[in-house]
Design a binder for these strands. Structure first.
Length: 470
RNA sequence: GCUCCCAUCGUCUAGCGGUUAGGACGCGGCCCUCUCAAGGCUGAAACACGAGUUCGAUUCUCGUUGGGAGCGCCA
């Protein structure tokens, strides 16, 4: 703990792929807890695997975090840059006799594990160099540094989510601290970096629970303070299978492209594994005020797009019209081919937005339903609309056109005129409204048709109707 | 195979020894209605199984079954 005693959180992704939904939730929980406690939230890129780390992945992670609105404090820490420090710690442990050199080759170890597996034994390093005289090693041969861990007793992870998790020490083998090329392993690097960064709380995926015990052994060997651990259950796909980059997990940017709002993602991800009584709609502000470690659930969750859609619909509906128009315009620039909206069209969309946003679950749906506002002129009809515009309907449209032309161009007046028209003809309002909608939008569903007439304006509306009126 | 974790409606979850087991999504019905939504009302839907502990278990303990994670000179 640092002297200010405020919690220090961190998110530590490895840049070997994009930021997927599980990582995003881990980041969110860390961020939320830091905000809630007034602590700090750090970002560390775990790029010690030089083979698989890529700048593209780093970029994708940073972009994903930015889109989700998860800002971090201070500079991004790149773990590989700290390799010298990691090595120094490994050598310190070696000097203190808490670690030792192991000259076993990878091939030799593969063989050892294959044999153990064949014999039905647990696959663990057998400690073949633990008490061997280093002088017996072939001169100049490469070696790794392993932790000399105790076999007696147990290591207990006091986890805020899982409770006390016990590991018998004889189950834990002597893990590698420093590779033969002198670079640190993940186990060493996390421990050293978390310590050096003053990390007090480690919130991460439950796939690290086993690792926690190993890391604890290093921490104990170093005599460092133990952080608070909270291992969050993993997220599974809709089919119950593991959701990972190997099994079709999506990058957070894919959710952006599917038309979901960052606010929706924060709310949805929060509820996937954390609860506050019966509350479902939880704003980010409210989440910061409420978030804690105690209410994180212990069982894995499945990702459900239906519920995501519903939540997104809610946030779409409650969004400011002008702001949503802007968001939609942004979204359209990501479309292929990109669509650019001019100011006239934007004004129209904003005017129609109250009716539009009520009907959309995603920005993609919103973009489609607003399609009748993008361009001027008669519409091309979809199948259903073409069916609606029967000869009789077209005739009715022609008669209606005359009534409409002399009407004051406001939704209430247009509705009154149309109702009047329908009544005079002895038809239902729908029989007048549907042909109108079809001619105006090219579809059979849209926001209330009299509002459509109003936002389109007299000239444009009449032009569109005339195209299908007899 | 070994270690560890998990287990309430289809899904996300509330529950923290005594409840008509609650909410949300989805699904069915009704209302509203110019379409589609939204909204309101309403219906169906769950404590994996077996032993204990207890006056009493969804809740505590153990086991079974079923999921999941880890067991690398990856992170």
């Amino acid at each position: 703990m640092t002297q200010n005693s405020k919690p220090v959180l961190r998110f530590a992704p490895s840049p070997t792929g994009f930021l997927h939904i599980g990582g995003a939730r881990t980041a969110l929980f860390n961020w939320l807890y830091a905000k809630h406690t007034g602590g700090t939230f750090l970002l560390r890129i775990e790029d010690t695997d030089r083979e698989r780390s890529t700048p593209e992945a780093v970029d994708a992670i940073l972009k994903g975090m930015a889109w989700l609105g998860l800002n971090w404090d201070g500079q991004t820490v790149y773990q590989f840059a700290r390799a010298g420090r990691h090595r120094a710690i490994a050598e310190q442990l070696l000097a203190e006799g808490k670690a030792y050199r192991c000259y076993a080759t990878p091939e030799e170890l593969d063989e050892m594990r294959a044999k153990q597996r064949a014999e039905g034994k647990p696959t663990r390093y057998d400690g073949r160099w633990r008490d061997r005289d280093p002088a017996s090693a072939p001169p100049g041969a490469p070696f790794v540094i392993r932790l000399r861990s105790t076999d007696e007793g147990e290591t207990v992870v006091h986890d805020k989510v899982m409770g006390d998790v016990r590991f018998a020490n004889d189950q834990l083998d002597d893990m590698i601290l420093l590779r033969s090329d002198g670079t640190p392993t993940y186990m060493l690097a996390v421990v050293v970096d978390d310590h050096d960064m003053g990390v007090t709380h480690v919130i991460r995926g439950a796939d690290h629970l086993n690792n926690a015990a190993r890391q604890l052994q290093i921490i104990h060997a170093l005599g460092w303070p133990v952080p608070v651990y909270a291992h969050v259950p993993l997220i599974h796909g809709p089919d119950g299978a593991k959701l990972s980059k190997r099994h079709g997990a999506l990058a957070v940017e894919a959710y952006r492209d599917m038309g979901y709002l960052p606010e929706t993602m924060r709310n949805y991800l929060l509820r996937l594994g954390w609860s506050h009584g019966d509350d479902e709609i939880i704003s980010t502000e409210q989440a910061i005020a409420w978030f804690n470690l105690e209410n994180i659930g212990r069982s894995p969750a499945r990702f459900d797009f239906k519920k995501l859609d519903n939540l997104n619909g809610h946030y779409l509906r409650t969004m400011d019209d002008a702001a949503l128009t802007e968001t939609l315009a942004q979204h359209l620039t990501h479309a292929s081919p990109p669509i650019v909206l001019n100011s006239k069209v934007r004004a129209r969309i904003t005017a129609a937005m109250p009716g539009l946003k009520e009907r959309a679950k995603t920005l993609i749906e919103l973009a489609q339903s607003a399609g009748y506002l993008y361009t001027d002129g008669p519409r091309t009809l979809d199948d259903a609309a073409a069916k609606v515009l029967s000869p009789e309907a077209r005739a009715a449209l022609g008669a209606m056109l005359q009534a409409l032309e002399q009407t004051d161009w406001s939704a209430p007046a247009l509705e009154a005129a149309t109702r009047n028209f329908a009544e005079g003809r002895g038809i239902k309002l729908g029989q007048a409204a549907q042909p109108l909608r079809a001619a105006l939008t090219g579809h059979t569903t849209s926001p209330p048709v009299f509002g459509v007439l109003e936002t389109l304006g007299r000239e444009e509306s009449i032009n569109r109707i005339r195209a299908y009126a007899e």
